[in-house]
Design a protein around this nucleic acid. Structure first.
Lengths: 205, 205
DNA sequence: CCTTTTCCGTAACAGTTGTTACCGTAGCAC
DNA sequence: GTGCTACGGTAACAACTGTTACGGAAAAGG
């Protein structure tokens, strides 16, 4: 009889607004009123869609993780060999030339918030471990004979390099341009590159 | 005639209190009153030592940089060869087993604050470029014949790895323990390691 | 069209923020 | 000891925070 609403759509809208505010004005500027204004509504709707500000942050964090995972899935699915998938997934995590540079700023914002909030920290850890598991799987596919220790070290080194590049680029994009990030990634992946079997004769068997 | 005070000492005290608050309660908890309480005084003294909160943050940021530089100088001076200095400086920047793990949290806090404040961002960039210059110098001493491009790529990769390890360890210390960080660093430095001249015969000349 | 019921903007709330003005007081010169 | 003066604690300020309560409005059913 009365009005109907799509609560989930509202939450996604507000989470997106949260990202934008976080990317533009940083953590101190992340206000319910700022989010509401960015979403084109008032705090009334925000507080009806989420019980509290923390719930909004958690939802926005989860949404960030989900979208990142979907992008990684897509990048991985577009490749046939493990090494190519590794290049695609990590290359997509590193700053892309166009636009979503803001995502690093959002990531740093959530990280800083996580250092002050245990629940957010737990989401952060879960997301990072999920990413680690993905990279670990791909690295293991590239080097099936490596020991677990070596796999773990390589995986965590790669992820640390990627996140470090992102974090540093977020604060100083000119010193860490997209091209350099890709080159740094390529250099780190060199040890996993499959033996070059070019030349005319394909010894495929 | 009247009371005398050591303004510089007060500022250092307050900056230290700022670090502690930042490490414990994160950026949202970084309040003038919290800093004052941590320093054992009231906001009155804080506002007499600094004209504004931003000035306090800038001073605390600068102090962090200075102390980091001093530590790096000491680590570098304790070594004779360039590679050893590189290991010492980077190893000291990476999370040490005991205690000053908090420094990474402080660093992340300042970084997040820098994303919302241009002046803080400028300090951050200056500090990072100074660190980059130091590493660049040491890497160049290890590999004098490398091209500038290769030096730059290696330098920035190393710094990104170190900062990435720090950032990830700050939020998830169990996944990135000190030992793993050191191993990751050692692996990344392998390509710069001087040729092994051990064995009994020292072909020194 | 009218009723009804959910929705959501308005506005107030108490608490906290950075900042300011004020005045008691602690310490040095005499 | 006495007096002076810079120091810094107290308390107020306005602005802003997250959160709450309420009432008008809008849509679906009759």
């Amino acid at each position: 009889m009365p009005k109907r609403r799509d609560v989930e759509a509202q939450r996604d809208l507000l989470s997106n607004a949260t990202w934008q505010v976080l990317a533009e004005t940083g953590l101190p500027g992340l206000t319910l009123r700022a989010v509401a204004e960015r979403a084109g509504c008032t705090t009334g709707l925000v507080m009806h869609a989420f019980p509290t500000k923390k719930a909004l942050l958690l939802h926005a964090r989860d949404l960030l993780y989900e979208r990142t995972a979907i992008r990684a899935d897509a990048a991985e699915a577009a490749c046939t060999d493990a090494f190519g998938a590794l290049v695609a997934v990590l290359g997509q995590a590193v700053d892309l030339p166009h636009g979503h540079h803001e995502e690093s700023r959002v990531w740093v914002g959530f990280l800083a918030a996580a250092l002050a909030d245990d629940d957010l920290a737990e989401r952060h850890r879960a997301a990072n471990r999920s990413f680690l598991a993905r990279i670990h799987r791909l690295v293991a596919a590239c080097r099936p004979k490596w020991t677990d220790e070596r796999l773990e070290l390589t995986t965590k080194s790669l992820v640390a390099l990627v996140e470090g590049l992102n974090v540093l680029a977020a604060a100083d994009p000119r010193t860490y341009p997209a091209r350099l990030q890709q080159e740094a990634l390529a250099k780190a992946l060199a040890e996993l590159k499959p033996p070059d079997r070019t030349g005319d004769g394909k010894h495929s068997g």
